[in-house]
Simulated scan of single mutants.
Amino acid sequence: MKQQKESLRLLEEALKELESPKGSVLSAIQKISRAAVVMDDTELHVWCLIQLGEQKYTAALRRFLDALVVRQEDDSEEVKDELSKYRKEIDDLGLKPGIHYSSEELTVKYPESGGGYSNIGFVEERYADLVRTKKGNDGTYYKNNLNSHINYVRKKSHELASNLFNQLKFSGTISNCFELLKNEVDDKLIDLDSVLTEQLMLAFKSVSSSKEEEWSQALTTCRRILEGLADQLYPASDQKINGRVLGQSQYVNRIWAFMDASIESDSNKALAKTHIDFLGSWLEKINKLANKGVHAELGQLEATKAVFHTYLVMADILEHLGDEAGDEGKPNINTATIDEIEALLSVSRNVAKEIFKHRIKEGFLDLDSLSKINGVGPKTLKKAEEEFVIDG
């Protein structure tokens, strides 16, 4: 995203230069070149280097162009072989016809009186000198040819810069925004359960498939992911919370209970609960239709909605793993994140997860309950007293 912003800034400045009667084509090309480097657009970068007179490319192009002109008048095998040799030379440099040496560009670059393959800044200077002295030529360079050269480069660079600018600014906006959400969820979920993360990634991949069976599979996978997440965050129990049964099959209720215990803001809590209730009931409805063999409503759009909703619910849930600090500048162990538990207690990721899950299940952690968790010994308990605020 940062690279994209920098490229857009450079391209916008370049376009302003090119659209101004007094703007410098040299300055514009330099900015387009930098933008191309940032976005790893090698073809555009090389085109810019040619306009800037990079000898590596311009010398080979001049040899090829001269041989091409000779070939128009001499059909001998010797001339053909020489042309083939120079064509191979520019091919080996990665130069492409229509991009780095179009017919129009070769026509403009051929006359030395128009600057040839010199740096476009040099061409602008020679033209400015002739305009200032009110001369049509200086014996080497001709004003009309220089002007044609500058106008061609101005027009072509404006076209290339505009294309890249529009591509960066307007294409893929929605997908990029979702990619941001997806990456955030994937990163957090993989710490909690790598298997669930892999399943979610596969479901996302499945909805772009052309096979109907993969769409149906993505729907089923979304439900299983939520079931697995419930097992991680709020294991099944015989108790009830606000009349909700928390058995093994009541995965929506268990995620709901996790959010009830973890989200402090009442408004955020209500929104997250509503979302998981909606997704759970919607997935159950869709899966019942699938089990009955009703496929008309189970198209790619439904599968895509299921995956997107699952990512949104995951974002709601994983955002609230606890991040409040204690009154003394130390985090409270009852609101600490998994990362804080792992880092500050110097325990493995698995032990940190066990501590976190125990806290969610019991609703509270103190030294006594902490000591009963597998992997937590005297040294860890001492570390907990030093690094965390532990109420009670």
Rank of each mutant, 00 (worst) to 15 (best):
220 T>N: 03
151 N>E: 13
221 T>C: 10
206 S>P: 02
147 N>I: 02
214 E>W: 05
212 E>T: 11
208 S>H: 07
166 N>S: 11
217 Q>T: 12
196 L>E: 01
150 I>Y: 01
199 Q>A: 13
224 R>A: 06
205 K>Q: 15
165 F>A: 07
215 W>L: 02
229 L>Y: 03
216 S>N: 05
256 W>M: 04
259 M>F: 08
222 C>D: 07
207 V>Y: 06
196 L>G: 08
206 S>G: 03
214 E>Y: 09
260 D>F: 01
191 D>W: 10
153 V>Q: 00
184 E>L: 14
209 S>C: 02
234 Y>F: 15
205 K>G: 10
265 S>F: 10
258 F>N: 01
191 D>A: 04
164 L>E: 09
219 L>C: 00
208 S>R: 08
204 F>E: 02
202 L>M: 14
188 K>S: 15
176 N>C: 06
234 Y>C: 04
267 S>E: 09
192 L>F: 06
254 R>M: 09
174 I>P: 00
151 N>K: 15
191 D>V: 06
246 L>F: 11
238 D>P: 03
182 K>P: 04
176 N>M: 10
268 N>L: 10
162 S>D: 07
251 Y>G: 00
266 D>F: 08
180 L>V: 09
264 E>L: 10
267 S>V: 13
157 S>P: 00
191 D>Y: 09
168 L>R: 05
198 E>Y: 11
219 L>T: 00
204 F>N: 02
254 R>N: 07
245 V>Q: 05
191 D>N: 15
207 V>H: 02
157 S>K: 05
176 N>P: 02
208 S>P: 00
227 E>Y: 07
186 D>R: 15
187 D>K: 15
177 C>W: 06
222 C>P: 03
235 P>M: 12
208 S>F: 10
247 G>M: 06
245 V>F: 01
236 A>W: 03
184 E>R: 15
149 H>G: 01
237 S>Q: 08
170 F>C: 08
229 L>H: 05
175 S>H: 05
168 L>A: 02
248 Q>D: 14
157 S>L: 04
215 W>Q: 01
242 N>G: 14
148 S>K: 15
194 S>R: 12
221 T>H: 07
151 N>Q: 15
167 Q>D: 14
199 Q>P: 04
150 I>R: 01
206 S>N: 13
174 I>D: 03
147 N>A: 08
202 L>Y: 04
176 N>G: 09
159 E>C: 01
168 L>Y: 10
268 N>G: 06
233 L>T: 07
268 N>Y: 10
212 E>V: 11
180 L>I: 14
228 G>N: 11
151 N>V: 12
215 W>G: 00
154 R>Y: 05
158 H>K: 10
204 F>K: 03
247 G>D: 06
265 S>R: 03
186 D>E: 14
212 E>D: 13
191 D>L: 14
223 R>Q: 14
204 F>W: 11
238 D>S: 08
215 W>A: 00
162 S>P: 01
149 H>C: 08
